[in-house]
C-alpha cells in the first residue's frame, strides 16, 4: 500500500480555487519533489496531507500508523521563547539526550545541543529541524521549502543529507523546492504543480515537457535557465556542476 495517497483533491481558500484535480501517491523509499511557481498550491498540498486544511473535494489517505517527520520552513516563535536545541528535539520525539546527540552528529552539528534555537544560523537551523524530524523514525519526511535562505553550497549539502537519510532509513521523502537544479538530480519523481498537476514523472521526462518549459523557461535544461535569473556569479555553473556530481 502507498504511504500517502491523494485522490483527486480540490482546495479552496475563500472563493479562490487553489488546487484542483490533484492526484499523488507516495511509495516507500522514494524521493518526490513538488515544484511550481509562487501561489501554485504547493504548500496547500502539503497542508492537506498533514490535515491542516480540509480538501473541499477528494480525499487524502495515510497508511495506518504512518509516522510523519515534518520539516517546516521556519518556526514562528519570537525571541521571548527560550528553548535549547535539545529541548526542541525532545518536544516532538520523546527521546533521550543520547539519541539527540547521535542525530545531531549525523547532521554534522553536534556542537549545537545546548544552543538556543533563536541563536542558530539558517543552515544550522535547517539541520537541527531535520535531525529533530528524524528522531521519531518517520516513514515519510515532508519538507516545506526547507532550504529557503540557504546559499547554494548549503542547500546542496542539505539535499545530500536527505539522500543519505533515505539510503540509511529507507523513508520516503516528499519535498517542496525552489532549487530546480538540485531537484533534477536528487529526485526520483518530480511533480510540477500550478493549481493542478501540469506534468509529473522522472526529472528528465518532466524537464522536457512543454508545460514545464512554459513555467520555468525553455533552455536545454529549464532548471539552469531559471537558476541564471536568480544569481549572477561567475562560478555558479561550476558550483551546480559540482553539486550534481556529488548528488548523483
Amino acid at each position: 500500500m502507498n504511504l500517502i495517497s491523494v485522490e483527486d483533491i480540490a482546495v479552496r481558500y475563500g472563493g479562490n480555487i487553489v488546487l484542483q484535480n490533484v492526484d499523488l501517491d507516495i511509495e516507500q523509499g522514494e524521493i518526490v519533489t513538488v515544484v511550481g511557481p509562487n501561489g501554485s498550491g504547493k504548500t496547500s498540498l502539503l497542508k492537506a496531507i498533514i490535515g491542516a486544511i480540509e480538501p473541499t473535494k477528494g480525499r487524502v489517505t495515510l497508511k495506518r500508523g504512518l509516522k510523519i517527520g515534518y520539516v517546516p520552513q521556519r518556526l514562528n516563535f519570537n525571541p521571548a521563547l527560550p528553548i535549547t536545541v535539545e529541548r526542541f528535539m525532545r518536544l516532538t520525539a520523546k527521546t533521550e539526550r543520547h539519541s539527540c546527540v547521535i542525530a545531531l552528529e549525523k547532521a554534522g552539528v553536534s556542537e549545537l545541543l545546548k544552543e538556543q534555537m533563536s541563536a542558530l544560523s539558517g543552515g544550522q537551523f535547517q539541520r537541527v529541524l531535520l535531525a529533530a524530524a528524524l528522531l521519531g523514525y518517520p516513514d515519510v519526511l515532508l519538507l516545506d521549502e526547507a532550504t529557503q535562505g540557504l546559499d547554494q553550497p548549503g542547500s546542496a549539502s542539505f539535499y545530500r543529507q536527505i539522500e543519505t537519510v533515505r539510503h540509511d532509513t529507507g523513508c520516503a521523502v516528499l519535498m517542496i523546492s525552489h532549487d530546480l537544479h538540485v531537484v533534477m538530480s536528487a529526485s526520483d519523481r518530480v511533480i510540477c504543480l500550478n493549481g493542478h498537476v501540469c506534468c509529473a514523472g522522472t526529472p528528465a521526462v518532466v524537464a522536457s515537457t512543454p508545460e514545464y518549459k512554459a513555467l520555468f523557461g525553455d533552455g536545454t535544461d529549464g532548471a539552469l535557465a531559471l537558476y541564471r535569473h536568480e544569481h549572477d556569479h561567475d562560478h555558479h555553473n561550476n558550483q551546480s556542476a559540482n553539486t550534481n556530481e556529488v548528488a548523483l
Binding site: 497542508k47 510523519i68 515534518y70 514562528n76 521563547l81 515532508l142
Partner: peptide, 10 residues
C-alpha cells in the same frame, strides 16, 4: 506555538 503545521504533522 512553535509551528502549527508541525503540530498537525505530530
Amino acid at each position: 506555538t512553535l509551528n502549527e503545521e508541525l503540530a498537525y504533522a505530530s
